[in-house]
Structures are given as C-alpha cells and as structure tokens.
Computed example of a mutant assay.
Amino acid sequence: MENKNEFAFGRKNYLFMIVGLVVLAIGFIIMTLDAEPYGEGFMGITLGPIILVIGFIIEFFAIMVKDRKKA
C-alpha cells in the first residue's frame, strides 16, 4: 500500500520551481522597467522576454527532473 503523505515531487523539484518562479518574476519586472513608451525599448522587447524564456525552461526542467530519493 502506498504512503498517502508523499508529495508528487521531491525537494530538488520544489527548489527548482521556486528558482524558476523568481526568474519569471524578475523577467516581468525587467519588462516593466523599460523607459521607452509602451515598453518598446531593449529591456521590454529583448531582455525581459529572454529572461522569461529562461524562467520557463527552468520550470520545465523542475517538472521533468527525477529526484534520486523518489526513484
């Protein structure tokens, strides 16, 4: 019988998820800090979205990585 108090992911997964969420938040904040109107400068169109993509990659990795303790 399975232990019902077990989480779906391990500690490593949750740490990566938190890091990914922080990176996503930083990406959105960078996009709002652009001085150009409507966020059409370098920070709003280039740097912010690149940081967001990195954050989503970290989140994908956090979901897909297998925790060694859970295996």
Rank of each mutant, 00 (worst) to 15 (best):
P37Y: 03
R11Q: 12
L33C: 09
I18G: 13
I30N: 02
G55S: 07
L15E: 08
K66A: 13
A35P: 03
E6I: 01
I50K: 02
Y38Q: 11
M31Y: 04
F42L: 12
E40K: 12
Y14N: 10
M17K: 03
Y38H: 13
I58A: 07
T46L: 14
G27V: 02
N3E: 11
F28V: 10
I57T: 12
F61E: 09
F60S: 14
L33G: 11
P49M: 04
E40H: 09
G55R: 01
G48N: 03
G48F: 00
A35I: 02
F56G: 12
I57Q: 09
G41W: 06
I57H: 00
F42D: 01
A8P: 00
G48D: 01
G55Q: 03
I51G: 00
F42G: 06
T32R: 12
F56H: 09
E40R: 15
G27W: 00
E59S: 08
D34I: 05
M31T: 07
A25T: 13
N5Y: 07
F60N: 09
Y14C: 04
I63M: 11
G44V: 01
I58M: 04
E6P: 00
V65K: 10
K12T: 06
I58F: 03
M1P: 13
F7H: 14
F60G: 15
V65H: 08
P49K: 01
Y38C: 02
E2Q: 11
